[in-house]
Design a protein around this nucleic acid. Structure first.
Length: 888
RNA sequence: GGGCGGUUAGCUCAGCUGGCAGAGCGGCGGCUUUACAAGCCGUAGGUCACAGGUUCGAUCCCUGUACCGCCCACCA
């Protein structure tokens, strides 16, 4: 069968089904095979995947498919994350749209609702991943809330609890009034915000005057329990120990001295609200101040404040307090003030510091192990500079607040006994108190931070806490691929928990890619609506084009801009490969199946393209190994398009036309086939669908391209015959011949000679080697350069009517009588002269410098000398050519 | 307030042991060349942000400056 026009949608579904049906994504589990495992960063079941996911998964698929072709026991485990906050937020939003709330329908119904939501999102996500072509082993798919993973979560919680590394405490936490839950430090987003600094007068209780405090949060004054000044501040020396009467409230509160206060900021006196400010909370502890929480969970004022303010939202209350203070003549002044405010990442609400009882992980002991593993290289970071970022955070890490006042997630496996007040952590559900036997047990209402379960992902997905074959085979995983934006959220947690529970790092390498941006460098996001939708791009250009684009844009750690035009360009590249295959296929059908390489007598160009193929194969492997995907695919793209298609395919045309005898014909056919087939293999990890399709079209190819050996430079010597001999010479000679052809073409182009018009050419080589070379490849040179009569001369004096070109070690003269544009020619030569002269000055200067000649490596000096003399002879030729141009 | 990136062609970006600055897109000129107009041939375009330093030699290494982006951070 022969190929039609390239149409991605026509082939992609077919091959994905084929791969699944043939179970090609499962690990081979062959003994002696080196394992190579990746666990997918589980996408949130909140909706659909964006381009960032497509990027992340393309990289992983490339690494996995490559490893498979290298003969490794490759496994990629797929799965999804329940994403507690994010998912609950979406479902709550949906409920609100239906005019109800989760409280109204109750916990059980809400969870049912959320599971349904999850199922739908999951279906969408899996469908998208399949469209992208990911070769994950779907039989091993996991979900963070499934039974196995939940068991792992409980095991980890209870173990850490028993080790004293999980504790419950009354603390000031980041409270999200939008979510009605505590959130971790990492979930707080700091943003510079314009605010004000209000100066309030607090009258001294003894009537001897007032003290002025400065605050950005007037409403919290209703919860003030002190005023603080710096102990050394002369201005306030006399008032420390006195009390003030808190305006609007009437409470008498002390003036205390504390080092924390910065005398230079504001008035040097600060109101102290231990219930609503982390600093004040600490300060309050030092001075034994009462903690008054003046807000409800949704951040409106509660009954601890005077009647007039109760029930007001905190920002309403702020206005009211300022107005009332002003009315009382106690507002001294208001200054604009820009400061960083904490916002809840999910709900967007300003975080309200709030004292509450939460569960924490004492994280330092775990962090130390992770830092050590990165320091000593058990975990490698790509790019390397991310190590610094990692250490910075890990070395200043704070205890991790893991309880969330949500419903969607792993319930905290702790029971409280109302009879004996025991607190029991248990892996199994319990119905009676393990201390007193009472059945008056209450299970903790809260759930765990989502990242608590994702942190176990590299081993929970493999069946831990059971001792499974997967764990024994695939843990530690080879590489974790993700964006640098979740280094702390996820990578750090996996490193810590993996080392703690498995005793081994969860991955040998962390490969951090960047963030995707649009063509203007803006971060892609749903809210901005500037994101390219991966499915839309796949529909339009094919998954392979999208994947190749993402791969070729992958520079470790660097953000990528993704203009649609780039995807289009790469679709065109695929189209090029498609058509090259059609070309080869056409000749195969005509001439019969291609012989093996070992059975033909290769010509110079055959040896050249094969040598280049294996050079490129070496580069691709090296670059992939270094995770420099951009370089790997730049190299491959250039080879396939600009060497194989632009040159080699063109070069074979005369031979395939039978002009050079049966031997050359067979050699060309065999070489075309081989180079194409091997190129398809090199391309396969990046563009699996089209390479599989084209592979299946090549005669004599058996089985999926997925499991073919990835080409290596070492394969070249095994080809036998003349293939491995004098590769350098073949490459050098081919390049010289190409130079001759290009030089002729340039002169033709400058004089606007029609492509089909044959022109007589005289080549003036500097030595006999080149002449012999051109003569031996005359048919190729003549065809590709559009030459009529090809002649050689040692000197060529006649200029009139001739176009002149200078290449490396030769000149060409084109018989262009009547065609030559003298003025254009003069300008072109003039320009060439300038360039040559400039370079000569540069080189000569260098060589006249004794320091250079002395100190630079001999090879560099020698190279410069050679280049200089070549340029000088070129210069002479150009000058001669210029002076002999006809006057007009 | 600390820290990390970036600044290279009109645009988007490569350039990883210092030795002639590259690609894609876009531009310009020419092509119905029997795989491909999603193409082919040719071509123009750069003080590698700025200032110093190291070096025979710096886009690359060091120091500083200016912008841009990001991360972390409890000064009200």
């Amino acid at each position: 069968m022969s190929l039609n026009r390239y149409d991605p949608t026509a082939i992609e579904r077919k091959w994905y089904t084929y791969w699944l049906d043939n179970n090609l994504f499962a690990p081979s589990m062959g003994s002696g095979q080196e394992p190579f495992c990746i666990v997918i960063p589980p996408p949130n079941v909140t909706g659909s995947l964006h381009m960032g996911h497509a990027w992340d998964n393309t990289i992983q698929d490339i690494l996995i498919r490559w490893a498979r072709m290298e003969g490794r026991n490759a496994l990629w485990i797929p799965g999804t994350d329940h994403a507690g906050i994010a998912t609950q937020w979406m479902v709550e939003k949906a409920l609100r749209n239906r005019g109800t709330t989760k409280e109204e329908i109750g916990r059980e119904a809400f969870l049912k609702e959320t599971w349904a939501f999850k199922e739908e999102a999951h279906g969408t996500i899996v469908g998208q991943l399949k469209r992208l072509g990911v070769s994950t082993d779907w039989n091993r798919e996991r979900f963070t809330l499934d039974a196995g993973l939940s068991r792992a979560v409980r095991r980890v919680f209870v173990t850490l609890f028993e080790q004293g590394l999980i504790y419950r405490d009354l603390r000031m936490v980041n409270w999200s009034p939008g979510l009605l839950s505590a959130i971790s430090d990492l979930e707080v987003e700091h943003r510079e915000t314009d605010g004000h600094l209000w100066h309030f007068r607090y009258p001294l209780a003894d009537g001897s005057g007032h003290i002025t405090v400065a605050t950005t949060r007037p409403e919290t004054m209703l919860g003030d329990t002190a005023v603080a000044v710096h102990p050394d501040d002369e201005r306030y020396r006399g008032v420390v120990g006195k009390t003030v009467k808190l305006p609007l409230v009437g409470r008498e509160i002390p003036i205390v001295a504390d080092d924390f206060v910065d005398p230079a900021f504001g008035t040097g006196a600060v109101k102290v609200t231990p219930g609503h400010d982390p600093n004040d909370f600490e300060l309050g502890k030092r001075h034994d101040l009462p903690v008054i929480t003046v807000m409800t969970e949704d951040a409106s004022l509660n009954d601890e404040v005077p009647q007039a303010y109760r029930g007001l939202d905190r920002f309403e209350a702020r206005k009211r307090v300022v107005a009332d203070m002003d009315a009382a003549g106690l507002l001294e002044k208001v200054e604009p003030h820009r400061h960083a405010l904490g916002y809840c990442q999910r709900s967007g609400q300003v975080v309200e510091p709030r004292v509450s009882t939460q569960w924490f992980v004492k994280i330092k002991p775990l962090a130390d192990k992770a830092v050590a593993a990165v320091e000593d290289g058990r975990i490698r970071m790509v790019p390397d500079f991310q190590k610094k970022v990692f250490f910075e955070w890990m070395n200043n890490i704070q205890d991790w607040c893991i309880s969330r006042q949500l419903w969607w997630g792993h319930r905290i496996p702790v029971w409280y006994c109302d009879a004996c007040s025991a607190v029991i952590a248990s892996e199994e559900d319990i119905s009676a108190c393990t201390q007193c036997g009472s059945d008056k047990l209450r299970m903790d209402e809260d759930v765990l931070d989502t990242w608590f379960s994702s942190g176990l992902w590299p081993f929970s997905t493999m069946g831990w806490p059971d001792d499974t074959e997967d764990l024994r085979t695939f843990y530690p995983t080879a590489v974790l691929v993700t964006g640098y934006d979740i280094l702390f959220f996820w990578v750090a947690r996996m490193a810590m928990l993996g080392l703690w529970f498995m005793g081994k790092e969860p991955f040998h390498e962390v490969f951090l890619h960047g963030l995707l941006r649009d063509q203007y460098g803006e971060k892609m996001s749903k809210t901005k609506g500037n994101g390219l939708d991966p499915l839309e791009m796949i529909d339009k250009y094919g998954a392979d084009a999208l994947r190749f684009t993402l791969a070729a844009g992958t520079v470790p750690g660097r953000d990528m801009n993704l203009p649609e035009a780039t995807i289009e360009g790469n679709r065109n590249f695929i189209n090029k490969i498609w058509n090259a295959t059609r070309f080869v296929q056409g000749h195969t059908e005509r001439l019969g199946p291609p012989p093996a390489l070992g059975g033909v007598q290769p010509g110079r160009f055959d040896r050249w393209i094969v040598a280049r193929l294996y050079q490129v194969a070496g580069e691709v492997r090296t670059y992939l190994d270094q995770r420099r995907l951009n370089e790997a695919y730049r190299s491959l793209y250039g080879f396939v398009w600009h060497e194989f298609c632009d040159w080699y395919v063109e070069i074979t045309k005369p031979a395939l036309g039978g002009e050079q005898g049966p031997q050359a014909e067979q050699a060309a056919l065999a070489t075309l086939h081989h180079v194409l087939a091997e190129s398809l293999k090199l391309l396969h990890p990046a563009m699996p669908f089209v390479t599989e399709e084209l592979w299946s079209e090549l005669p004599g190819r058996e089985g999926s391209i997925m499991v073919q050996p990835f080409p290596r430079p070492e394969h070249l010597p095994a080809l036998g015959g003349a293939w491995a001999q004098d590769q350098q010479a073949a490459v050098r000679e081919a390049q010289q011949l190409i130079d001759v052809i290009q030089t002729v073409r340039t002169v033709r182009g400058e004089s606007n000679v029609k492509p089909r018009q044959r022109i007589d050419v005289t080549v003036v080589p500097e030595d006999g080697t080149l002449r012999g070379l051109v003569e031996s490849e005359q048919p190729t040179v003549v065809t590709l350069a559009g030459i009529g009569e090809l002649a050689f001369a040692e000197r060529f004096a006649e200029r009139e009517g001739y176009g002149h070109g200078v290449g490396h070690g030769f000149e060409v003269y084109l018989s262009l009588a009547g065609l030559i544009d003298v003025e254009a020619e003069r300008q072109r030569i003039g320009k060439e002269l300038e360039k040559t002269e400039a370079r000569i000055r540069q080189l000569a200067g260098k060589l006249e410098n004794p320091a250079f000649v002395d100190k630079a490596p001999a090879a560099v000096v020698e190279k410069s000398r050679e280049e200089l003399s070549a340029l000088q002879s070129q210069l002479a030729k150009l000058n001669e050519s210029l002076t002999q141009l006809p006057a007009n």
